[in-house]
Nucleic acid binder design. Structure first.
Length: 553
RNA sequence: UGGGUUAUAGUGUAACGGCAGCACUACAGAUUUUGAUUCUGUCUGUCUAGGUUCGAAUCCUAGUAACCCAACCA
């Protein structure tokens, strides 16, 4: 046995249940509604539910809570399945709440027969008024004491499509003065003459979420039904239904939903960003959706590690996005191929290197020897990063400046001998001499330089579009700020570099390969990338100690 | 006197009456042909007030604060 890791509160409950013999194995489920794309909040729930049944004996179902036909679509079903699989999890059964519509209808009839449900002819407004408020009790509906026979007849006719949408509902008969608002005769069926993505036009009445969710868990014999904190008050209703219907007692446990700094995490808000064109779509690389993060270059492993590290609890939280980025860099650092790309090119001419010749150099592909090496073409004219040269060097500067020495990664040490500027003061060309004895791998020059910079040979370089992403919002918690959360969108969250110069090996970049552009960050090809027009996304920057130094002033 | 849930470094999370620990962040340093990585170190915490106890983050009492609940959404 390894060192004992402390358990979260759900693991404690499960271990106690397993130890006491209450269950021999456990069943959990991930229950998305197919009305939108999955985001990081869902990832937490997925890792939790599937993670629990990886750790303990049992399995996890995927169940779509598809009880509202007007918002749900097959497109979402497909994207949700793809996202879960990409995250690396397998469900035991693919299920749908809509599979249980006949059973749910039967449960409703049972409730009516027990005198525990009634058909209400009130309008939505009337129901709302009689519901009371959190501090005032509600009042009974005038239709509350209909006979069982009448309720049965009306409910049957609701099902048969005799009444228009909104004209009647079926309500559980509990207690209009209950301190829990959800127990004040909750609606359990409503009329919707709508086409359902799976059941088509079979039904024109649909169960409310609260009448489908708990019973679906029960039907599937979910031992530990895990959801977020806002459903705590619903548990009382689910337990009531389980008791009255005398069905399998699933038990619900609640944990605090995850919030991430500098983003928003609700379907409603994310949908606004998409609809208002603040982003290009659900899979825009700036979105905290699983599909957006995948497109940006996040690895599934880094997301799983992150979910594991933040743990679960029941308190309000706002997790620092830097922890997610830490997990990402940690993963990418081991696996990403090192290549050279110059994002903001300026020409460097090596005056003592023969014109028209090319020298082949060798460079490692990564920190691990198993990643191998590749050949780099070196010539008299190179592209280097504009920001790696300073006409008047700052203190602690150890890159290129007039008279200074710097190592060209995997190549030679060069000395800056001069430069040209145009009328606007922009550097147009930097001139250096190289030290032939300083060749990387067999350096006999005896010279030690502090700085190493990346480069690409001008005649060999290929151009590429590079998209740099930054956080989507300017503030830590946009939802808690005054006014509309969209007022806090970061206007500089996307910067496009149309013509970066990258090394020729990148012409064959594949979609699933992650690269580190040395000294610049981790990148991957975007889905827009073609052989004629390469497009790279910056997944995340490298940590940058120099940038911090600069900020100190 | 509506009901419910929660309070531990800047952030996230442990400690289950017995030395408040871990990770991220921040900061300082070492190493470095990526100012990356790696390594070392530093700062910062039990919501408040009482009480019980040899001993309290933990138990008790009283407060305080935050979040959730009045959709024919989930």
């Amino acid at each position: 046995m390894s060192e004992e890791k402390s358990l979260n509160f759900l693991e404690e409950i499960i271990e106690a249940d397993l130890a006491s013999g209450k269950y021999a194995s456990i069943v959990t489920r991930f229950p998305p509604e197919p009305n939108g794309y999955l985001h990081m909040g869902h990832a937490t729930s997925i890792c939790l539910n599937f993670g629990l049944t990886k750790k303990y004996p049992g399995y996890t179902n995927l169940r779509f809570d598809d009880t509202n036909p007007v918002t749900e679509e097959t497109e979402y079903v497909d994207s949700i399945k793809a996202d879960i699989q990409w995250l690396g999890f397998e469900w035991k059964n693919e299920l749908y709440a809509s599979d249980y519509f006949p059973q749910l209808y039967e449960y409703a009839v049972q409730l009516i027969n027990k005198g525990l449900a009634y058909v209400d002819d009130s309008t939505a407004e009337e129901i709302a008024i009689l519901k009371g408020t959190p501090t005032e009790p509600g009042k009974d509906s005038p239709y509350r004491n209909r006979s069982i026979a009448e309720n049965l007849d009306l409910f049957t006719r609701m099902k048969n499509g005799e009444f228009p949408d909104g004209s009647r509902t079926l309500r559980a008969k509990i207690d209009m003065a209950h301190t829990n608002m959800l127990m004040r005769d909750p609606l359990i069926y409503r009329i919707k003459h709508a086409h359902h993505h799976r059941t088509g036009d079979t039904w024109c009445i649909y169960p409310m979420y609260d009448f489908a969710h708990g019973q679906s868990d029960s039907i599937e014999q979910i031992t530990h039904s895990i959801c977020t904190l806002e459903f705590v008050p619903h548990r009382e209703l689910y337990d009531w239904l389980i008791e009255k219907l005398e069905i399998y007692p699933s038990h619900q446990y609640e944990f605090a939903r995850r919030n991430l700094s500098y983003t928003v995490m609700s379907k409603r808000k994310l949908l606004q960003l998409v609809n208002d064109k603040h982003v290009s779509g659900w899979d825009d690389p700036r979105m905290p959706t699983i599909s957006g993060m995948r497109r940006r270059g996040y690895t599934a492993a880094s997301i799983r590690t992150f979910c594991d590290k933040i743990g679960i609890a029941k308190r309000e939280n706002l997790t620092d996005i830097s922890l997610l980025e830490f997990c990402l860099r940690e993963d990418l650092n081991h696996s990403a191929l090192r290549v050279m790309a110059v994002l903001d090119p300026v020409k460097l001419v090596i005056t003592n290197f023969p014109e028209g010749t090319t020298e082949e150099l060798t460079s490692e592909n990564g920190p691990d020897e198993s990643m191998g090496t590749r050949s780099l073409s070196f010539s008299r004219e190179l592209w280097i990063e504009r920001e790696d040269f300073m006409e008047v060097p700052a203190k602690k500067w150890f890159r290129l400046a007039p008279g200074s020495l710097v190592r060209l990664k995997s190549a030679y040490i060069v000395k800056c001998e001069g430069f040209d500027k145009d009328d606007s003061g922009q550097i147009t060309e930097i001139r250096c001499t190289y030290i032939p004895e300083s060749r990387s791998g067999n350096d006999t020059s005896g010279i030690n330089v502090k700085g190493t910079i990346h480069w690409v040979s001008v005649p060999h370089a290929i151009s590429a579009e590079i998209r740099l992403y930054d956080r989507l919002f300017k503030v830590e918690d946009p939802s808690s700020e005054e006014g509309d959360f969209k007022d806090y969108i970061n206007p500089d969250s996307l910067q496009i570099i149309p013509n970066a110069m990258v090394e020729p090996s990148l012409a064959n970049a594949t979609a699933d390969t992650r690269y580190q552009f040395i000294r610049k960050g981790y990148f991957c090809t975007d889905k827009d990338s073609t052989a004629d027009h390469l497009v790279f996304n910056r997944t995340v920057t490298l940590k940058d100690a120099w940038a911090k130094e600069t900020k100190k002033g």
